[in-house]
Simulated assay, not measured.
Amino acid sequence: MKTYKVNKVDGNHIKINGRGDHPLWEKAIVLNDFLSPWHFESVGDIEFRALHDGDSLFVSYKVNDTHLHIDSTDDSKESVNNSDRIELFLRSDRHLNPYYCLEIDPLSRIQDFIARPNKEFDFSWDWPKKDIAIQSYIAPTYFCVEVALSMASLKKFELIQTDGTMEAGIYRAKYNQQQNGQFEPTWITWVDPQTSSPDFHIASSFGKLKLDNY
């Protein structure tokens, strides 16, 4: 299983602003080996970083993209589902019963839901508002999304193992306009799930986050 080390920083010092420019992000390992096993085109540069301070898990995505597709119908989860976005799935074990999905677009809008095997999704579920913070930023050639999750919520959902590891899926959905004018997603992932068609809702698409000094 692919593993990413989440370095620890001093508590109460990192502040997310959506730009990914806080000096402490320099202490994070850059994860950029993303791919789309089902498409031939380049997936573009994507940088994922994660840090923790013992009280919160911080993640940052920087995605090179000059042609964003954003469904601006409203702020519903359905609009997020039709937009370019980053995705973070977290599970307690490989049985996926349950697992938690965070899908966030460049406007900081979130589609969060709890899921179970065979793509049983409950979109009425939300990550507790007091336990999550989201900031984003759009530049001419890229966008950034930063997320802070409380360790209390991660423990409540049994997402941190006794050895300080978490099992996570790290993904991106990029919508491209087709010849018929419709927009279709290119699915991009950190871990190749070895499936014939795109599928993130499967145990083999997850990797491991190792919390340093946890």
Rank of each mutant, 00 (worst) to 15 (best):
K210T: 03
K156E: 04
T141K: 10
F121P: 00
S83E: 05
D65A: 11
S205F: 00
F121I: 01
N81Y: 14
A148T: 07
L57N: 07
K119C: 09
Q194I: 02
V59Q: 11
I46T: 06
D131T: 11
Q177Y: 10
H22D: 06
F58M: 04
D45K: 15
S153M: 12
L24I: 00
S197W: 12
D105T: 04
D126Q: 14
S196L: 07
S42F: 12
L24E: 07
Y99G: 08
T73H: 15
K208V: 05
Y61W: 13
N118K: 14
K129P: 02
F157G: 04
P37I: 05
W25C: 01
A50D: 01
W187P: 00
L90Q: 06
S72G: 08
N82M: 12
Y142A: 03
Y4A: 08
K119F: 11
V191W: 05
K77I: 05
D65C: 12
A133S: 14
P106F: 05
H39D: 11
I202K: 08
N12I: 01
D74I: 05
D163E: 09
F121Q: 08
G169I: 06
M151S: 02
H52L: 02
E146L: 03
N81W: 10
Y61R: 01
F183Q: 04
I134T: 13
E26K: 14
S124D: 08
P140D: 04
V191A: 01
A148D: 07
A148L: 04
T189Q: 10
A148Y: 05
S56Q: 08
T3L: 03
S79Y: 11
K129V: 00
S197R: 13
E146K: 13
N12W: 12
K155V: 03
P37M: 07
T141F: 09
F183K: 13
S196C: 01
G54W: 07
Y4W: 10
D199W: 07
I104G: 05
K5R: 14
K129D: 06
D33Y: 03
Q177K: 14
A148F: 00
P23L: 04
D55L: 09
T141V: 11
C101Y: 14
W127H: 07
S60Y: 15
I188G: 09
K77L: 03
S197A: 09
A148E: 10
F123I: 02
E167F: 12
W127F: 15
Q178H: 13
F123G: 00
F123D: 10
L96T: 02
Q179T: 15
I170L: 14
T162A: 15
D21W: 01
F143H: 07
V30R: 00
G54I: 03
H67I: 04
Y100F: 15
P23N: 00
N97S: 12
K208L: 05
N118H: 14
F40A: 10
E78R: 13
V30N: 03
G11I: 02
N7E: 11
D131Y: 14
E78I: 13
N12L: 02
D10W: 02
Y61C: 01
S153N: 01
A28L: 03
D163I: 02
K208E: 04
Y4M: 08
F143E: 03
I202P: 11
S72R: 14
I114G: 12
A168S: 10
E184K: 15
K5D: 03
Y214T: 00
